[in-house]
Amino acid sequence: MEQARSRALDAGVSPRERARFAVRRTVNLVMAGLVGLAALIGVAVMLFILGYVLVQGWQALSPTFFSQSAQPLDFDAKGQPIAGSGGGVLMSILGSLLILGLAALISIPLGLLAGMYLSEYGHGKFAFLVRYVADVMTGIPSIVTGVFVWSLVVITTGHFSAWAGALALSIIMVPIITRTVEEILRLVPNALREASYALGVPQWRTIVKVVLPSAASGVITGIVLAVARAGGETAPLLLTVLGNEAINWNPSQPTDALPLRIYDYATQPYAVRIEQAWGASFILIMVILVFSLLTRIATKGKKVG
């Protein structure tokens, strides 16, 4: 039946054209295959990297890994480090929290304010400039930001500190938060602003109490993603907080951070340290993944306003 129909459609088509059609059809199929292969490679690489880190990292986790700071390795009689020695990464987790907390303290208010400026007041040339600057800043390599803060703070004060790291991360976070907040507030329907103005509410209260709460989930998502991105940054921290084997709560002292600890341990010759680096990678990637997934679920299918 199928054949009969195609024969009927083919009636009057020369063999040469039929051959050309076969070529075209083959090219079409091959390209479809290649396109699918490209997508498959992308997904496979992601799963490979993620799976590898999670499997390797899972094995390194233990209660002491979370509850202890770095300890010197213990060696056995043959001079090999004993598995399970070397303490944990508590100082890195707390250090990351300290640095990120300080950075969030600086960058969330600034990013929110600048984002509100762009969406609520920004119609003129100055707004164009602000938007342009924010976009340029998101394109600056993080190592350049690191060098900037290094020469501004570390070289001038003479020592590495959590403050310097927080400053560097803030410079990365503020433009991201600014632009996300702007885009999300723009989605809030004007009708809500008008409803508020018509009740005799001043513009600033309208922005803070009507516009911002209506877009809360989107704004929070944007902020969380910016914090998550900053949490994985290594290069700027390398140049600013240096690292510290002990827990440090003093923002003007060198501090540890998870990515720095991974960098340090990954390049050490001891298998125990490498395993700890995987453990630290596991924590870092899980935190980032959980945040990415949660915010994705939280915003899925939800329209702002």
């Binding site: 992308g42 690489v45 994985g232 290594t234 870092l284 980032i288 990415s292």
Partner: peptide, 8 residues
């Protein structure tokens, strides 16, 4: 892939 930190 974009969410995975560079150090990893």
């Amino acid at each position: 892939l974009a969410a995975i930190p560079s150090i990893i």
